[in-house]
């Protein structure tokens, strides 16, 4: 399972050590792209470089085009109806981050959920406010998450789950996140599935970035059935 973290203020190696101890196979660093410093990190631990585009739709389109090739994972920060709509209608986007973070009315609806399912854009569920906020802020966060979950489930849109950690102290393990998800009404399996999804997107994007990939279903080179094993299917053996 993977988790996504903001670029930590401490060294990345201490965050990866904590992540390994709580049971993650890898971490997505949400910003920094290929410039993420990997000094001291365990080479067996997978670190996935990501970039977050935080801009209104007019500016975001150009930035996505420029950054798509630079990074394995591309996230677009939502929060308003316009931003959310732009992100879910853009197939080059991997993850719509913080879709309900804005101060406005609930900025996600069934039209956006359908578009996210059509374009394969993962909708992010950030458990950070549930873990770290209190009072009304947390109540609103829980209410937004359950409302978003209903839409995402109804229209079968893909999703990812994170705790929005910015350091080793705010990192929580997969079982802890699943327990919190179950308690606030998201469901244990929904959270586990969302944590696995980070690894699946990373595997898919790395496969696409490899030399032999031409387009979906087309590869360069001699035919070998082993090459056609679906990287998105986890090997349980």
């Amino acid at each position: 399972m993977y988790e996504a973290v903001h670029p930590p203020s401490e060294s990345l190696s201490s965050v990866t050590a904590s992540a390994t101890s709580v049971g993650y196979d890898g971490l997505v660093v949400r910003d920094g792209g290929a410039d993420v410093p990997l000094d001291g990190c365990d080479s067996d631990f997978d670190i996935v470089p990501g970039l977050t585009v935080d801009a209104d739709p007019d500016a975001a389109s150009g930035r996505i085009a420029a950054r798509r090739r630079e990074t394995t994972l591309l996230l677009v920060r939502g929060g308003t109806p316009d931003r959310n709509r732009f992100a879910v209608e853009e197939p080059r986007v991997d993850v719509l981050a913080a879709p309900t973070a804005g101060p406005n009315r609930f900025p996600f609806d069934h039209v956006l959920a359908r578009a996210a399912a059509r374009n394969g854009v993962r909708v992010e569920f950030d458990l950070g406010p549930v873990l770290r906020e209190t009072g009304g802020t947390r109540v609103r966060a829980v209410s937004s998450l359950t409302r978003l979950r209903d839409l995402v489930k109804t229209y079968d849109a893909p999703h990812v789950v994170t705790a929005g950690a910015g350091g080793s102290l705010s990192l929580r393990g997969p079982r802890a996140l699943a327990a919190v998800g179950e308690t606030v009404g998201l469901g244990h399996d929904f959270v586990v599935e969302g944590l696995r999804e980070w690894g699946r997107i990373a595997a898919r994007n790395r496969d696409r970035a490899s030399e032999n990939w031409v387009m979906p279903g087309v590869r360069r080179g001699r035919y070998d059935p082993a090459d056609w094993a679906d990287p998105l299917v986890e090997d349980d053996s």
């Binding site: 549930v130 327990a179 919190v180 179950e182």
Partner: peptide, 9 residues
């Protein structure tokens, strides 16, 4: 499991 959730918070 609820105890686990509490400790995570």
């Amino acid at each position: 499991e609820r105890g686990r959730a509490v400790l995570a918070c």
